[in-house]
Design a protein around this nucleic acid. Structure first.
Lengths: 142, 142
DNA sequence: GTGTATTTGAAAATAATTTTCAACAAGACA
DNA sequence: TGTCTTGTTGAAAATTATTTTCAAATACAC
C-alpha cells in the first residue's frame, strides 16, 4: 500500500488528513526497520516541525487500528518474555486483534537453507502471520 | 531445556542460585505465552512471596543475556512500529545480539496451508530466527 | 557454622505513556 | 474565498513503567 492509498483509508474511515498524520505515515514508509514512538517523533519533526510526541502516540494507535501500521517485534522495545527455546507461531487478526496459534510444519527446510547460507546455528524461531479471520472477512464484505 | 539444565547454566556462568531467580525461571517455564515483567512478578510471588519487581527486571535481563529467556513479540507490549504489509525476516545472534536479514523463500507454501486450515486471509508475516552467528560459535568452542 | 561477596527489596530517581484541555486547523458549505 | 463546526493538536499535568542507589539479607566456599 502506498501513501496515497493510505490517506484514502484514513479519509474513508472519517478521519481528517492532517499534517502530523501525513508526516508520521511518511516516516514509517521511509523506514524499513521498526521505529519507536520517540524515533518516529524525531524523524517526523523534519517533516512537520510542530509535531508533538503525544500526537505520535495517538496517531500510531489510530493507524494501527486502521491496519495501516503494525507493531513489529524488536529486541529492546518488546516487553514480552518467555522461556527460551520455545518456538512460536501466531496468527493475528488485524480486524478483531484475536491471536490464535497454528501448527507449523514445513519451516524446517527453510531454516536449513538459512543455516547453510549464513553459517548461523538456529535454535528457535518466531513466526507471526497477520491477516483477517473468517468473521472479520465477512464483516468487511458486508 | 528443562529447569535443572537452566539452573546449571546459571551456576556455570558464576551466578548464584537464589529463590527469586528460581521462582522467575519456574514462572516462565509454566507459561507458554509471553509475560510482562509485571505478570512475572504477580505469578512469581506465589512461589517466592518476597519477590520484588525490581528483581524481576534485573533477572529477566540476566536470563536473557544467558540465553535462558528471550523476548517474544506481543501486541500491547511491543513498542516497535512499521508500515503495514512489509514482511520481515530477521536472524538474531544470541551471542552478540547482532541482527541480520535474510532472503526468505519457501514460506509461501506454509502460509497457503495455514490459510486453508484456518480460513484466515494472510497479509503479512514476521519470521524471526535466533541462534548463534559463526563468530560466536567459534568463541563458544574455544 | 562462619565469612565474604553477590543478590535482594524498598525507596528514590528517571523515563515512558496517557489524560486533560484550551487553541488550532481541516474540510463542509455558503 | 471566507466562515463555521468539529475533529485534532500540543503543552502541561498525571500516571505508569523502568532504572538507580544502598543497606540488609542470603548463597555458598571454606
Amino acid at each position: 500500500m502506498n501513501q496515497v492509498e493510505m490517506t484514502q483509508v484514513l479519509r474513508q474511515a472519517g478521519y481528517r488528513l492532517t499534517q502530523p498524520r501525513l508526516a508520521i505515515l511518511q516516516v514509517l514508509e521511509e523506514n524499513d526497520e521498526g521505529l519507536s514512538p520517540e524515533e518516529v517523533h524525531q524523524q517526523g519533526r523534519a517533516i512537520c516541525a510542530s509535531l508533538g510526541l503525544v500526537t505520535v502516540y495517538r496517531t500510531l494507535d489510530l493507524l494501527t487500528e486502521l491496519g495501516l501500521v503494525r507493531r513489529v517485534h524488536s529486541e529492546q522495545r518488546c516487553q514480552g518474555f518467555a522461556s527460551a527455546g520455545s518456538d512460536r507461531h501466531y496468527l493475528i487478526c488485524e480486524g478483531c486483534h484475536r491471536v490464535i496459534e497454528f501448527p507449523c510444519h514445513g519451516l524446517e527446510a527453510l531454516i536449513e537453507s538459512v543455516r547453510q547460507q549464513t553459517g548461523y546455528t538456529i535454535n528457535a524461531h518466531l513466526l507471526e502471520l497477520s491477516g483477517l479471520c473468517p468473521e472479520c472477512q465477512m464483516g468487511q464484505a458486508a
